[in-house]
Design a protein around this nucleic acid. Structure first.
Length: 582
DNA sequence: CACCCGTTTA
């Protein structure tokens, strides 16, 4: 029977089969006891042009795990297939399984597993494989050794990478390029230069890496010189230059360069969108987006992020909607959803945000990761579901500055100030550097519980982290001082500011004055608020309250009338301004 | 086996 089936099966497998059809076919193979044909099915799966996805990965692992005769060749090819298609977790897991069943991996499988570890940041897994490399006698294989070098480079251990490099019996251009990339990423541009000039044969990647090194240090003159000198360019060369201009905030130069490019791919387009997003030019970003005829998921992600980052959550959600409506079968991924959840938080659309968490993620089988958790922490915090947010926070695999900050803010705004302080201390102990947003969060928490001296300590410590307090931080300090009635001190703090205070700073002082019926400083604060803000009705009411509080009913009445009539108070021509300017 | 893009916090 097998004699007949094999040619038929081979013919069949040459056709395009959906993964569902393949599963049915595989079922038939098992039913007829033709287990030796499983290898054929696997080979078809990993060479078929259809996209790699979790389903196929899962299915392949299932076949390998349950096949009667262990098939080393298939296992090895599958590891390589996973790795080449970004399934690093699966590649590593499959390698471990192969190892466990006592089979000998091929050099390609070892190299792939090492690459997978490098990409996953799984240093320990990689080091484990390194040990096995010795016992299997794979040392001397340039692919394996270069992958090993890549592993140490990816965990920022250039010392060991260099050791591997020095001990290699044979080096190829990739080994050299990997070293150059490693030194550039660790900020050792001069060592990278040495390797670059010392290597026997440079290829386009070597040149591109060096250009990206100069781009990173904002040295666009050197980058351009190298770009002009290089013997041949590929699309990456152009894109590296482009991202250099964007990174150094030279958006006009970037645009010129973009226009002069011989060909533009999705990456060029995403880079431009990112550049425009950074300088708030949403319109130009959208134009670039629209120009691209073939839009993929990454492009959508970039544009949705642009909207979200620039406080346009409505547009972000609209574009997300459009992305889903398309017939072109673009699936959102973790990154899309993290951004969309952030847009929901900004809008206060808790219903949609939690629907994504509770239902949609399961529907499209997207698993939770730390980025998603962080955006959900923010969503739940803003909705007041602080316990849910805390639960997510404790489920994080790696707490970073963003997640700590989101949680500190959430606690500070939901009556859990002491947890906020605790988290802040915990964060400092784990040597995570706070940023400006973190300080906004912790100062908010301290403000709510009236901790003046702690706030000062906190505020003054910003310098130590190379942070310059923004007007928002001054606002918080003024609010804290104002709350306890230290208004003169708050005023002095504002006067000592190195930058122009915005209306929020004076507004905080005005609020403090209204709580303590301080007319004198209240008028000064109000005056600044009216100058800085076109809609001053809120400030006007506050000042009116102060007048009323000290019994100046006429002034209060007159001011309230103006607020009521105009909704805003123009500085010149106000009858009571004369009084203020005395 | 190497180079370029997109994820989360006020």
């Amino acid at each position: 029977m097998a004699g007949e089936v094999v040619p038929k099966l081979s013919t069949l497998l040459k056709c395009f089969l959906t993964s569902k059809q393949l599963k049915q076919l595989h079922g038939l193979i098992l039913v007829h006891g033709l287990n030796h044909l499983e290898g054929l099915v696997i080979r078809h799966l990993i060479t078929s042009p259809s996209d790699y996805n979790q389903g196929i990965a899962h299915y392949l692992r299932l076949i390998l795990r349950h096949s009667k005769q262990p098939d080393v060749a298939s296992s090895n090819s599958v590891i390589r297939y996973f790795c080449d298609h970004g399934g690093f977790q699966e590649a590593f897991a499959q390698y471990v399984e192969l190892q466990r069943s006592g089979l000998l991996p091929s050099t390609f499988a070892v190299a792939s597993a090492l690459k997978a570890c490098a990409r996953l940041g799984n240093g320990n897994g990689g080091i484990m494989i390194h040990g096995q490399v010795h016992s299997h006698g794979f040392c001397g294989d340039v692919y394996v050794e270069t992958a090993l070098l890549g592993l140490y480079k990816s965990v920022n251990d250039m010392e060991t990478a260099k050791k591997v490099f020095d001990e290699m019996s044979e080096r190829n251009v990739v080994s050299w390029n990997s070293m150059i990339d490693g030194y550039i990423r660790s900020g050792n541009l001069s060592i990278a230069e040495e390797f670059f000039s010392g290597m026997p044969n440079k290829d386009v990647v070597s040149w591109n890496s060096m250009i990206s090194g100069y781009s990173r240090t904002r040295d666009m003159e050197k980058a351009l010189r190298l770009f002009q000198e290089m013997p041949e360019r590929n699309p990456t060369s152009w894109n590296v230059m482009l991202s250099g201009y964007v990174e150094s905030d030279k958006i006009d130069l970037a645009r010129n360069f973009y226009n002069s490019m011989p060909q533009r791919n999705t990456i060029s387009c995403i880079t431009m969108i990112g550049g425009y997003s950074k300088c708030g030019d949403i319109k130009s970003a959208r134009e670039v987006f629209n120009c691209m005829s073939q839009k993929d998921q990454l492009l959508y992600n970039a544009m949705i992020t642009c909207y979200s980052k620039n406080s346009r959550p409505k547009e972000a959600l609209q574009l997300f909607d459009k992305m889903l409506q398309l017939k072109s079968n673009i699936q959102p991924d973790k990154m899309t959803l993290a951004t969309v959840i952030s847009a929901c938080s900004q809008l206060g659309d808790f219903t949609f945000g939690s629907w994504i968490h509770d239902i949609y993620m399961k529907q499209i089988s997207i698993t939770m990761d730390d980025h998603l958790r962080t955006s959900l922490i923010d969503l739940y915090s803003k909705h007041g579901s602080i316990d849910k947010a805390l639960k997510l926070f404790h489920e994080l695999h790696k707490k970073d500055i963003i997640s700590y900050t989101a949680m500190i803010l959430g606690c500070g705004n939901n009556g859990k100030e002491h947890i906020a302080i605790q988290l802040f201390d915990e964060m400092m102990e784990s040597k995570i550097r706070p940023n400006l947003v973190t300080f906004s969060g912790i100062l908010t928490a301290l403000s709510h519980i009236g901790k003046v001296e702690e706030s000062y300590k906190c505020f003054n410590s910003m310098k130590r982290y190379g942070l310059v307090p923004t007007p928002d931080h001054y606002s918080l300090m003024v609010e804290i001082l104002g709350r306890v009635g230290r208004l003169e001190e708050a005023h002095n703090l504002i006067k000592g500011m190195q930058m122009e205070p915005h209306s929020g700073v004076w507004g905080a002082l005005l609020l403090g004055c209204s709580m303590h019926d301080n007319v004198e400083l209240g008028e000064i604060a109000a005056k600044h608020c009216f100058e800085l803000e076109s809609d001053s009705s809120g400030y006007g009411s506050l000042l009116a309250n102060i007048y009323a509080g000290v019994g100046r009913w006429e002034d209060a009445k007159r001011l309230r009338k103006r607020v009521h009539e105009k909704g805003s108070i123009k500085v010149p021509g106000s009858s009571w301004m004369n009084h203020l300017q005395e």
